[in-house]
Amino acid sequence: MRHIDKTVVGLTIAFLALLFADFFMAEWMRFIGLQSLARGTVALGLLVLWRTGLVSFGHALYFGFGAYAAAMLTLLGYHDAFFLVFAGTLIAGLLAFLLGFLLRRYRAIFFALLNMAFSMILYGVIVKTEALGSTDGFSVLAPTFLGYAPEGEAVQTTLFLFTLVFTYLITLGVHLYLKTTLGGMSMAVRENEIRVEYLGYSAEKVIHFKYVLSGLVAGFGGAIMALAIGQVDPDSMANWTVSGEFVFITILSGIGNVAATFVGALVFELIRTYAFEYAPQFWQFILGGSLLAIIMFLPDGIWSVLSRLRKAEKAPSP
């Protein structure tokens, strides 16, 4: 029963199209694209957790950790994007691994809030640390890529290419992972932990693994974001509202498909850009209002609309 995985095909087509488009895109589009990829990757981790029945209100912790880790390494004189992003990802994953031992014991709202508490500690540390620029943060110099040091617009073009390749690989990896036994156990743990234990596997281990995965990808997103906007600061990297935005993207996208996450991230980024452009004082109003609208009228996110449309197309006409 070999069949073609449509998601893999779709992702690959989108990847190649964007790869090509990178060289023609307007600067502002590339900027929005970069941020969407960064935030979308974080939401990918939340999707994995969400499928396990867990929502984190604190993934800005890993996002901020990855961003600040990468940014601090530039202060030490490291500028290679490969190294910075790899380090940011890894160090966030390490933190998730350590905190995971505590967090895997919690479910539901406790899990969500404990994550928030930990993220607020990071926020507090950053705000209190003068060396890290306190509330102003500090700026991050343009990265190099294995010795290649682009200048001007080429920096963003190269960074976009770099981000695109890694995001593609990560997304593909997460998609395939969800089809494995461990990936599928998300469902099992969400539905019935008692049964999972009595089938012979530890629900906590499942959760821990997924938590580390979500920490890694959030760290990746953070490191990319630091390089993309050339700056880190606590309010846009580590505050609890940042965590709220990730949850927003996840619920907007729905948890049906990994590709939806990036569509959701892009929509979010567009709303955000235009809200800040035309009605900055209503940003929270718009964000909250759309979130309410999705919850009330589109409970399964954007993806459910797409799959409903597809079904309607396929259905035989009466």
Binding site: G244, V247, F285, G289, I295
Partner: peptide
């Protein structure tokens, strides 16, 4: 999340 959304709205 719904109460969080409402909170954001009410802030503005």
């Amino acid at each position: 999340l719904a109460t969080f959304a409402m909170f954001l709205v009410l802030e503005d």
